[in-house]
Write a protein that binds this DNA or RNA. Structure first.
Lengths: 155, 155
DNA sequence: TATTGTTATACTCTATAACTATA
DNA sequence: TATAGTTATAGAGTATAACAATA
């Protein structure tokens, strides 16, 4: 792919900026996590399962804002890597509780260090004030209620 | 999809923030552009073709950082909508020059207004200083050379 | 030989529909 | 009847390989 410097007509667009920031971070994330045998999405799953006790697949999917069918494949992969175990909930036998194995907890810790180092390097071109502003504004935009949320759960 | 408030373990991740900012903006963009019959990617193509004279498909693809095979389908769709025309370059008959039709120029103007209004609304939760900081830091991160660029054109 | 556009193909991510087992 | 997990399937979006026309 012939890669030019992006023209001003693109870098003034929020859509272009978000997309390419995301793409660049995903690349760096894959590079940083590759030695740990997982990708950024899998790391996020591990982090959520570690942060909340006894989450079912559906509950974890809800926190991650991913579909339950996507969650199946994600847990499959993590189980194959012996980082996560499924067990039926005793209270509700429809539910699969997904929990980290001891190996999974180790992997999470190591991979989180790699992720944090990657993020520091990613933000290195910015002043610390600008980096803080970026994170804060993104949190505000992502956490803020969507227009679609005004009525019901339409998205 | 059961949508929870995202837990802190996710909103502290740059990957999560970029991804969901991008997803939210894409939703709003689709909504804002829908009356104009195009999506954000098509609008970006129109804007690039309008900003540079006599771009070939490959040259436009380079500016947009998309693959030439993707460009074919994109120009196909825009040509079907009679917003863009292909013509063979007289200088190099391998090249297809893609240029806006008069209808395409009108559509670009109208859709750009819709996009700008959408972006203003999207950033409305932020102070104007924060909004400016967000755009500036994103431009810095996206425009800055990637580690992969240090050596050659590997990505 | 290399480049441009094109087509066919495949891969990833995601969502929808339908099935099963439980409730 | 409704819910949780699963499977099959399909739709975006993107990339690779191969081909025709042109350089």
């Amino acid at each position: 792919m012939t890669r030019d410097a992006p023209p001003e007509v693109l870098t003034s667009r929020l859509g272009y900026l978000f997309k390419h920031a995301y793409l660049r971070l995903t690349e760096e994330s894959a590079r940083a996590l590759e030695p740990h045998g997982i990708d950024g999405r899998e790391l996020a799953v591990l982090a959520v399962l570690d942060a909340h006790d006894d989450l079912s697949q559906l509950e974890a999917a809800g926190k991650l804002a991913i579909d339950r069918t996507t969650m199946v494949a994600l847990v499959d992969a993590l189980e194959r890597k012996e980082l996560v175990e499924r067990r039926r909930s005793a209270k509700d036998r429809r539910k699969n509780i997904a929990q980290l194995t001891p190996t999974g907890r180790e992997r999470l810790r190591d991979a989180e260090h790699a992720r944090q180092a990657m993020e520091r390097q990613f933000l290195a071109p910015l002043s610390s004030a600008d980096a803080a502003c970026l994170v804060r504004t993104l949190q505000s935009l992502v956490g803020a209620p969507t227009r679609a949320d005004d009525t019901s759960d339409s998205a």
